[in-house]
Design a protein around this nucleic acid. Structure first.
Lengths: 193, 193, 193, 193
DNA sequence: TATGAATGAGCGTTCATTCAT
DNA sequence: CATGAATGAACGCTCATTCAT
């Protein structure tokens, strides 16, 4: 399998750096290749085309969120705690990889419609896990039964996303992780029974 | 003043349509010119360059939100009502101009970093009004004094934005306006004292 | 109409020279543009793509053959004389434009299948005129009624084509026009009643 | 000798199939290798480069024509009969190997000038045999002494070539072999004393 | 002998911007 | 003011060839 060979991840990681440092439109294939330390043509042994690199970046990195979240769901069963761990996890991953944060919050959003649709498919899995947390929270009586799940999900994700984007656009100057408890408190207040 | 001459708005409106119908990357200057019924070169008598058209689109259209919001602030003084009117206004404007909704929620986000920064400056005025609503709500004792204004603003804007973007991405099929009360309820629950 | 503007022919003529001098695969669009004294992009104001240039070269130049042949058909009604004039015309045009001879006999045949099909359509008109000469020659009793028109046409065209190609491949060193009477004699002997 | 080892012919035959089925420009070295069941690199143990494969294809296959023709020259001494056998042989070989017909009549002609010159050298041997038939036919009084041998050869080869190319371009739908007597008759009429 | 992963030079095309009319 | 023909820089991708194993 191609994605198990070392150069696959090497190129993925190079793409994140190249995009974060140059911007989406200035991250030419040749720049990614140079950053990865391979020839331009080598890229095409591992990826169908440039778009495929970008979707793969998103898929591989998103897997980190989803995996962690999966573990959290198994460890916790209180909705409030689950949400806290989710927020904290989301913030932590992007806090620890600032290049990745720039890429997911700013650069990848400049992609064309086709790529956006593929990215959304990947994102959907993550949002489904969030839906699960919310539904189960309602069922257990912990969360307000009158909430609209979709709307609640949009609020949770929208708040998280906007918070991180603001942090990135302001130069990642302050400590994103410290915001987790406050964001959590706000969200729980809105959702609790 | 250039922006008072009829062709200025003609080009702005043409840009919104051209971008909504063709997508950001397929909205070439020549297409905008054709849509506006002017020659390519004429564009450059009214705008410095392509980026200038797009920033102007955002500025002119954003003015609608801000104006309305200004009026609302003068008419209402309860934070809850102000927020309701703001959400309702935001939803209504984009509900009534579907081209504009596509442009602001999807297409304009594909622009490069430079343009994004300029757009954010324009957006900042709008967010400042929101900050005002929140601060005054806290001062009057209507809103929870322990909230972080910036965070609260990010939640409010993030939730609104995510809700609208979902609506656009799902083809603007359902009635966005009907969501206003629910969104408002959720937000107020999170923010009230 | 694009093809009436001077740059259209300018580019066509430049393409013939660029291809003759560099070979089909080495006649890059930028070389054709430089030879024509225009910018690369200008080419695309007159032609859809590179293939379109080449088909146009063939069409425009082939028109010379067909026009002359049309005139000949009107002036002469003896098949033998018509064939002589056709051969002489074909030889003369290529003899007088050696670049064109290289392009039609050698370079343009290196094009891909798609282009070849389009070229063949253009060629078909010319071959139809030849068919007319042969059919009318048979009807008038001047040519052998037992000949297969298609086969006869293939012989006439195959002989002419092979003769010219040999001349080109040998460096256009001898006088092609002098061969016309001999070729004509050979062909008439094969076809006469 | 390399060309006696089994993989040599294996690659030659694979090249004919790959070119006939994919077209000249789509017959990449890797496709030929796959068709031959060897690794890409192995090709270069038997051939200097891609051009060398193609020249070898032509040389090896042309040898069939020449060998047969050699035998014919020994068996027959009447020019008319020799020509008939030559035409019949030429038609038969290509009729029986339709892949080869496509390759020699259409695909190989798309090659660059350099390759074409090498192919012509191989072809020259075949054409020399044809010259011999014609010269001896003139000497024996069977053929018209006034003919120009080179021209006669161009007519014979041009007619055969054009006939076969037409057949291939029309999808090899009709019976090429049946045309041999008619072609022969036409040619003999042109050449006989 | 045989392999196949890696290489990197090369090119058609788009489109924002200019400027002579 | 308005036009639109002309410009030319910029880039993703292919594929013949090599060479370490």
């Amino acid at each position: 399998m191609k994605r198990d060979r070392p150069k696959y991840r090497q190129i993925i990681d190079a793409a994140v750096i190249a995009i974060a440092e140059n911007g989406y439109h200035q991250a030419q294939v040749s720049k990614i290749a140079k950053q990865a330390g391979v020839a331009d043509g080598t890229i095409y042994l591992y990826f169908k085309n440039k778009e495929d690199i970008l979707v793969s970046v998103f898929r591989e990195k998103m897997a980190i969120f989803a995996e962690n979240l999966d573990t959290i769901l198994k460890q916790e069963d209180k909705a409030s705690e689950r949400l806290y761990r989710m927020i904290e996890n989301h913030f932590r991953v992007l806090h620890e990889d600032r290049h990745l944060a720039i890429v997911t919050q700013l650069e990848l959003r400049q992609s064309g419609k086709a790529l956006r649709l593929k990215i959304n498919e990947v994102l959907k899995e993550y949002l489904n896990l969030l839906d699960t947390i919310l539904s189960e929270g309602v069922e257990s009586g912990e969360l307000d039964p009158s909430i609209d799940i979709r709307l609640a999900r949009q609020m949770v994700f929208g708040t998280i996303d906007e918070t991180i984007t603001s942090w990135v656009m302001n130069g990642q100057k302050y400590d994103l992780l410290q915001l987790a408890p406050k964001v959590h408190k706000l969200i729980i207040k809105a959702l609790k029974a």
